[in-house]
Design a protein around this nucleic acid. Structure first.
Lengths: 209, 209
DNA sequence: ACTCTAAACGGACTACGGTCCACTTATGTT
DNA sequence: AACATAAGTGGACCGTAGTCCGTTTAGAGT
């Protein structure tokens, strides 16, 4: 008896065939070994494919693009961070003052570049990959909620984006490596910015044309 | 009588040979025609070279990279904007209240994407080109000075960078095109951010570790 | 076991950015 | 006019991201 197996079954997330899953694991392992051994630049799609013993087409089928592969490589630490600020202990997690949580969030993100810098940068190349990353959406919502909880009013979604912009890995990396700003300085600076935003009253309304 | 022609003569800016200058003009014209006719994506280095009737090597010699070529393409409007906020009439130029100037600056930059969007984005690809653009340095200094004039204290260079980050063309383009935020909304949002920063007292010092 | 089909695969192929270097030319000197 | 030389030139060449499509295979139905 057939139970209409062809229906889309919305949100069904399509289970991956087991050979596909196996190849995904192989590819991620290959990529992460390559990063460890020879740096991010050595992670070419050909190299990863060869190392994993699959064809290049497979790499693209699984990850869509180089940036997608990098994002997958980050997935673990991204999820860990999300866990921390969604359900972990204060000051990152629930329970602490929202402003403290905000500050801790910024600090955590900035310090991520110390260990994941190059991969983060590679994951951000291409506007496509950069703005569609699920991690981005989660972070934006998180910031927005913290702002609201802290009693900030105004155009919160946009404010969240503006606060998130200085945390972009490529920028942080530039400030740290090229400009010589320490990560602590960056974190303090962002904390200052966040506190200013929270402290000041909203200024809604049009500006002079 | 030889007057030591081989000395570096620091800051001498090396005059361009006239055939070189001619080719630069040809290349820029070719590039700008290509943008007009077939969009930014059609501006490949090969296409520009062919259209200008020069070799590809010449394009790279003149502009260094695709991003460099795009930057050169923007040069005119960038300089115009700089003129406006450095020496033009208020509220952009000197004379107005620093906060008003700041707001006007943000608004002007955001509205730049309406006409130059794609080219701006292309000019920002590659961290190298993005952070070394002279236009960036000028803007950062401008913001920093306005903040100082407005009596803001704190880590001003860093604060300037943080305020500049949300103005990045790629981000603005995303918010406008993909997210559907109007440019006016973006400008108002940025103005709000800037005013909050100015209004709030500095919060120097370390945050909790 | 056999069949069927959607999914997965792989690697040749394309297009583009960027490099390299042997060759040409503008320009100032004698 | 002849020369010297730094600057400029062009296009073959390379590596890489991403596409395409003919072939293979997992796994569900019978």
């Amino acid at each position: 008896m057939v139970n209409i197996p062809l229906l889309p079954l919305a949100g069904d997330e399509g289970v991956e065939r087991c050979d596909a899953a196996r190849n995904r694991r192989r590819l991620l392992e290959a990529a992460s070994l390559l990063v460890a051994e020879r740096g991010v630049d050595a992670v070419t799609m050909d190299a990863v494919a060869a190392r994993a013993g699959v064809g290049k087409g497979t790499v693209f089928r699984r990850f869509g693009s180089r940036a997608g592969l990098m994002r997958a490589l980050l997935d673990h630490s991204e999820q860990a961070l999300q866990q921390q600020f969604l359900t972990g202990p204060p000051p990152l997690g629930p329970g602490a003052d929202p402003v403290d949580r905000l500050v801790a969030f910024g600090r955590a993100r900035i310090h991520l570049v110390e260990v994941q810098g190059e991969v983060l940068r590679a994951a951000e190349s291409s506007a496509e990959a950069r703005f569609n990353a699920p991690a981005r959406a989660v972070s934006l919502t998180h910031i927005e909620i913290l702002l609201r909880t802290a009693g900030v009013d105004g155009d919160l979604p946009l404010l969240a984006q503006s606060l998130f912009a200085p945390l972009e890995a490529t920028l942080v990396l530039h400030q740290w490596r090229d400009l010589g700003y320490s990560l602590d300085r960056l974190a303090d600076g962002w904390a200052d910015l966040a506190r200013r935003v929270v402290a000041a009253p909203a200024r809604a309304g049009r500006t002079v044309r």
